[in-house]
Design a protein around this nucleic acid. Structure first.
Lengths: 156, 156
DNA sequence: ACGTTATAGTTACAAATGCAACCATTTGCA
DNA sequence: TGCAAATGGTTGCATTTGTAACTATAACGT
């Protein structure tokens, strides 16, 4: 953030927003940078988007979820999930069955190949997360967790 | 984060990612929720996107910037800025002149109408920010700032 | 049993975004 | 001077994303 030159500082009477000190703006910069850093890893190696990876991550934890449940757990909307699933099924990363007793519901799980990919990507993702967290000391990490919890709790 | 039921906890040997404790994921949830909260405010009232608003906010602080400089200060890429400017100029929120002595550069500033809008939106945005920050106590706010600074500094 | 309402998921279309190629102008330097 | 490289900005095209409408099945109330 080098700030050498100060072009025509604008009208004080208008009280302009200072974007660089504005929380939502700063959050989105940091968040996007970090997410992209990790996404680059697996997008280069596999042909998969961030949304697709998130769907896979959830299915790795919870086998047999329906699409709606995946949407809930990833905080994505159902259309995004539907599209991600279409690609994942086509690429044979995910298996889609139909629920017995409710033909609307799908029953999702990773395929053999899905698991293989997951088992390579998950450690990479965790490693990147550690890299990022390494910039903070233990105390800061603790506060960050607490703060994210609180901010997240507010918006529900 | 109600977690009533625990569907088929998946294979421990695969060490699946716990999305809900994964920093990049949590950050993006919080960031998107907050940004959207604020964007809703002005998107309902005015026909303007988040990128357009950011361009306006920067021009309110620094009159006479060029498009490239706006891109730098908003951390948007130049194509996004170019398009935002096209709409803003068409809507008569922003004035575009040509730099004397360098006909490539544009010289940008808010119009009368741009200022009017700015002067309504900026306080709303600040109010929302305060709402969000109100969920944190003074100490937490202090740490959040410090942490964002550090995380931001890393990615440059 | 029957119609209404709700739920799971997909599709169609519009708007937003990203990337590469592209003009115009300026800069650097032989 | 003149020509290659750099810079500011826009345009075209393909991909992504968001929203609403739609299909199919299930649940509910009478």
């Amino acid at each position: 953030m080098s700030d050498k030159r100060q072009p025509a500082p604008a009208h004080a009477e208008h009280a302009p927003l200072q974007l660089e000190h504005f929380l939502p703006y700063r959050l989105s910069i940091v968040s996007n940078t970090i997410s992209q850093l990790i996404a680059d890893d697996y997008q280069r190696r596999y042909d998969i988007s961030m949304t697709e990876w998130r769907v896979m991550a959830v299915l790795a934890r919870f086998e047999g979820l329906s699409a709606r449940e995946v949407a809930e757990r990833t905080a994505m909307d159902k259309v995004a999930v539907s599209r991600a699933l279409a690609r994942l099924v086509a690429a044979d990363r995910v298996n889609r069955d139909t629920h017995d007793g409710d033909k609307r519901r799908s029953v999702l799980s990773l395929t053999e190949s899905g698991w293989t990919m997951h088992d390579e990507v998950a450690p990479m993702a965790r490693a990147r997360e550690r890299e990022v967290l390494a910039r903070l000391d233990a105390e800061e990490q603790m506060w960050l967790n607490r703060i994210l919890d609180k901010l997240q709790a507010g918006n529900m």
